[in-house]
């Protein structure tokens, strides 16, 4: 199905959403459950499998026009993806709320989120796409600052300690499935659909990179109370006592952006499958003067 111009996302925008979700996963997953080596090697295999699966599914989805919302099969697929994206949105909100409550002692997200969703309600995909660029810059700057802060705490010997040699010790590292991997014909246009099958690599880079840096800094920190957040807590610049809050604040902005993105996707799926919003869209276009 030919996507309307302005209703699709760039890969960097989708990547931002996935990096945000993967970072959240790393923050709250137990530290040192898998070694950096197993995450890097076995994770690569898992990611390759995911790439192939995403590629095959997207090819099938394009062939059968699975996101058109015209026939029974596409409506069924649309409903399935609607539920999946809704679950993903719920999960992102839950993690964001957890971060707000645990680290900022605030439940303000409950009040802020509806305002934000209302502000982004009429936004087009390309507008969300453009806003992703600024968040990428901020997130990249935050990650680089964090790496610079822990640079002098990284010791390569930690990678080769005695308890780090078993590749299979805790089994296969878990790989989270995100609906974006399989909904590329809905979210992208043209060549981006084919290049988008590499989206699982974005999550893999975050997962493997986080595990690698964590082991470089903390070694294999096996303790039930230790989570990935310990890496952020290790970040220090002398004067400041809690720089992890800064990166969490940046992550929170990215998480709120992801929630808006997921809300947009849910709205699109709803419109496609219920099929009653086209006239509203046209009405809006007609009254836009010289804006479009």
């Amino acid at each position: 199905m030919q996507q309307e111009k302005g209703s699709t996302f760039s890969l960097s925008a989708l990547g931002l959403g996935l990096v945000t979700a993967s970072l959240a996963e790393q923050f709250y997953s137990p530290a040192g459950e898998w070694t950096a080596r197993s995450t890097l090697l076995l994770g690569f295999l898992s990611t390759s499998g995911l790439v192939i699966a995403a590629g095959l599914f997207c090819a099938l989805a394009e062939k059968f026009d699975l996101f058109s919302g015209r026939d029974f099969l596409s409506k069924l697929a649309g409903c399935g993806f609607f539920v999946w994206f809704a679950i993903e949105m719920g999960r992102t909100i839950a993690v964001a709320q957890m971060v707000c409550r645990d680290h900022f002692g605030s439940n303000a997200l409950i009040a802020v989120l509806p305002v934000l969703l209302l502000a982004s309600w009429k936004m087009q995909a390309d507008a969300l796409d453009r806003s992703a660029r600024a968040i990428w810059w901020l997130l990249a700057a935050g990650i680089l600052a964090c790496l610079a802060g822990i640079w002098n705490q990284m010791y390569w010997q930690h990678l080769f300690s005695a308890d780090c040699f078993s590749l299979w010790e805790n089994g296969w590292p878990s790989v989270r499935l995100y609906p974006e991997y399989f909904a590329l014909p809905l979210l992208c246009r043209g060549r981006n659909i084919h290049r988008g099958v590499l989206l699982p690599c974005w999550s893999y880079v975050v997962q493997a990179g986080y595990a690698f840096v964590m082991q470089l800094v903390l070694g294999r920190a096996i303790h039930p109370d230790y989570t990935g957040l310990e890496l952020l807590r290790a970040w220090t610049l002398g004067y400041f006592s809690r720089l992890d809050a800064l990166l969490l604040l940046l992550w929170l902005a990215a998480a709120l952006w992801r929630i808006c993105l997921l809300a947009y996707i849910l709205r699109t799926l709803w419109q496609r499958n219920i099929g009653m919003q086209k006239s509203t869209w046209i009405r809006n276009q007609n009254n836009k003067g010289a804006q479009t």
Partner: peptide, 24 residues
């Protein structure tokens, strides 16, 4: 009123208000 959460939220509103604007 809302602390860091409000700050992150209003930053996004600022970004959206910039990125949602176009002429011709």
């Amino acid at each position: 009123l809302a602390g860091p959460v409000g700050l992150a939220g209003v930053f996004l509103i600022f970004l959206f208000s910039l990125s949602d604007v176009s002429a011709m």
